[in-house]
């Protein structure tokens, strides 16, 4: 078996490609540029941590199904954790977004990082919204009856029926979280691949 044969294999090619784009020292770095020194940098990782908590509490809620939290103290507490981790998630994500905007973090071939971040924000809003209408309480009833008009007016309501609990719950616990988590993963990989954006070269541009 020759080396050339090995090198032509799909598997080998994929591995080399991945190694080239994202070598381990980029994926799990042990140093970073010295300009990365501000509290504003912690909101990305804070958002990731909150996403972890949202997911974890959501998984616990899934164990006993959508109406468990109405009748169990433990369930209600897990629901509280789910709610507050969502609040903290958006809180951190919005500050992260403001921070990255004012750093113009799309510079230097990093526009796809910005775009995936923006799309993740939208997917997260959709995930949160379908969660709000899946609460099976007065809040979900009201939000669903209000939101139907907006969504129907775009034509999407014909297929995306916010009054259908089953449909909304499925979107909330499978389709949208998968999208949000996959997008987040892509976003993080892009950050690791391209690195953190350098400061404006004021002495150059001035």
């Amino acid at each position: 078996m020759s080396n050339a044969t090995i090198n032509r294999q799909w598997t080998t090619r994929l591995r080399k490609r991945v190694e080239g784009v994202l070598p381990p020292e980029k994926l799990l770095p042990d140093t970073q540029p010295s300009y990365v020194a501000s509290w504003i940098y912690v909101f990305g990782v804070a958002t990731l941590a909150a996403l972890g908590l949202v997911t974890l509490s959501g998984l616990v809620l899934a164990l006993k199904g959508p109406t468990w939290w109405h009748v169990s103290n433990v369930g209600h507490f897990v629901n509280s954790v789910h709610l507050w981790s969502v609040e903290v998630f958006f809180f951190s994500m919005v500050i992260h977004l403001w921070g990255k905007f004012f750093m113009a973090a799309w510079r230097g071939n990093r526009s796809l990082t910005w775009i995936t971040g923006g799309v993740t924000f939208m997917a997260s809003i959709g995930t949160a919204f379908t969660g709000y209408v899946s609460q099976t309480n007065f809040d979900s009833q009201w939000i669903a009856t209000q939101a139907k008009d907006g969504i129907n007016s775009t034509g999407a309501g014909a297929y995306f029926n916010v009054l259908d609990l089953g449909q909304m719950l499925m979107w909330h616990i499978t389709l949208l979280p998968l999208a949000a988590i996959a997008l987040t993963g892509l976003h993080v990989i892009l950050v690791r691949k391209r690195g953190v954006v350098p400061p404006f070269a004021d002495e150059v541009s001035a």
């Binding site: 020194a37 501000s38 509290w39 504003i40 912690v42 919005v94 500050i95 403001w98 921070g99």
Partner: peptide
Amino acid sequence: MMATFVAALFLPF
């Protein structure tokens, strides 16, 4: 949120 953003900008790291 706004206060945290401003604090993150100004507080020494």
